[in-house]
Design a protein around this nucleic acid. Structure first.
Length: 126
RNA sequence: CGGGGGAGCUAGGGGGUUGCGGCGUGCCUACGGGCGCGCUGAGGAAAGUCCGCUCUCCAAAGAGCGCGGUGCCAGCUAACGGCUGGGCGGGGCAACCCGACGGACAGUGCAACAGAGAAGCGCAUUGCCUGCCCGUUUCGGCGGGCGGGUGAGGGUGAAACGGUGGUGUAAGAGACCACCAGCGCGGCCAGUAAUGGCGGCGGCUUGGCAAACCCCACCGGGAGCAAGGCCAAAUAGGGCGCAUUGGGGCGGCUCGUCCCGCAAAAAGCGCCGGGUUGGCUGCACGAGGUGCGCCGCGAGGCGCAUCCCAGAAAGAUAACUCCCCACGACAGAAAGCGGCUUAUCGGCCCCCCCGGAGG
RNA sequence: GCGGGUGUAAUUCAGUGGUAGAAUGUCUGCUUGCCAUGCAGAAUGUCACGAGUUCGAAUCUCGUCACCCGCU
């Protein structure tokens, strides 16, 4: 998943809790639902409905969002369930723009730790 | 060289760093798991769900009617509405391509508009011929009325009841004749057959639509892996039917068959209502792939060798970066398999046809 | 994974082999000082798309696309 299974939201009721009673922040590319959990770590879920397009398009959206979440994971407060809903304009954006949008929404939801810069790419240079 | 036809293969490639699913294995474990190593990880259509089958449940999967499907012949196959070969019909100069391609003397039905008439032996309102009467006449005829013959000509239509030539006649007509086409019934030859070839007899034409009902032949019991099996948890301990020819399995009906019941209750069988949306299994070694040999025109079959090739459960292939090139289409497994159909940027190989030029 | 249905004018729907229709809406005119109402008239469609059967297809057959519903 880009994320180990312990960091995933897996149960339908967890999704419902975040979608219905969580805090919602919305951007042009993404929508976040955030709700506190009783755990020592965060859990993430991604919702890709039929409206997003074909199976290939939905898989693509999930993978891009997962990669972005993995980039941001270390800089977020712990103890939250986060549901991310991608919107169709996401496909036209480069990856860096998706990371930026996700980071902005996380800051808006009060998830980011103070004064931590986003690291550069994790991949080493040859 | 240009244009065209057929049959296949392929689906950007090569690295670096960080990650994800599965299997095996070693170590650690506060049994939740963690770390390391090795192997492996989407398609030719994975799609649409249009067919067929395996598998599972409905006791077993039986018969008739009904309903649905298929429809030239032979074969292949587990099976098919698929494929191969052949026949017939159509298209193309050709290579080759396309075809739901049984039956209209078993029956019922349909054919708007136009037209005299639309399938029954039916039609005269244009035309052709003619009898009688009247008028007229340049004595050849002409015009009108009443009647008869005709289906040849013109005309309508998608379609008009054989075609061409002749004989015949007042004018005509399969009325008669020759040839041709079609229909029916035999014969001989080739072929497993569909069918084709040759020849005979008969009557004299008896049309179209069955993707209209229908008839004939063949096939089909129903549901689907959310099938089904096991475990755990949780709720309720409730309501209804069950001798009369009863209740139910049985999903349209009947037969047949099976389970339960034959009355107080209980138990039993079935239905409804109520509870649970957790885990394991089914779940990946198969009508499997590859290579070789043999049989077959071919689809394919047989034998031997060899390989193990996704298996998730909010659902695994990603992020960044470097190089190369023709700058990368359609698109993501969910029980499995065989087909069909649809989407698709391109690239490569082979065979064949037509035209031009040259040897 | 499986089963079923719908697609016709701007909208809601008829039409099931033979000229594509109704209501509402739109437009024009009349009525009114003006508007509404009323009256008269007009415009209109790839019958979702592509093939086939038929003399002829919205209608019958096959395929495709889109949308909707049900089973858990």
């Amino acid at each position: 998943m880009g994320l180990p299974r312990t960091l995933r939201l897996t149960r339908s009721e967890d999704f419902s809790r975040a979608r219905q009673s969580g805090q919602t922040v919305r951007g042009r590319l993404l929508l976040l639902n955030v709700v506190p959990n009783q755990l020592a770590h965060n859990r993430y879920g991604i919702v890709t409905g039929k409206r997003l397009g074909s199976a290939v398009a939905r898989n693509r959206a999930r993978r891009v969002v997962r990669a972005a979440l993995r980039r941001l994971h270390a800089q977020l407060r712990t103890g939250w369930d986060v549901v991310v809903v991608p919107h169709p304009p996401l496909f036209e954006q480069p990856f860096a723009e998706v990371v930026h949008a996700l980071e902005r929404l996380a800051r808006q939801a009060g998830l980011t730790l103070p004064s931590t810069p986003i690291p550069p790419d994790e991949g080493g240079r040859p």
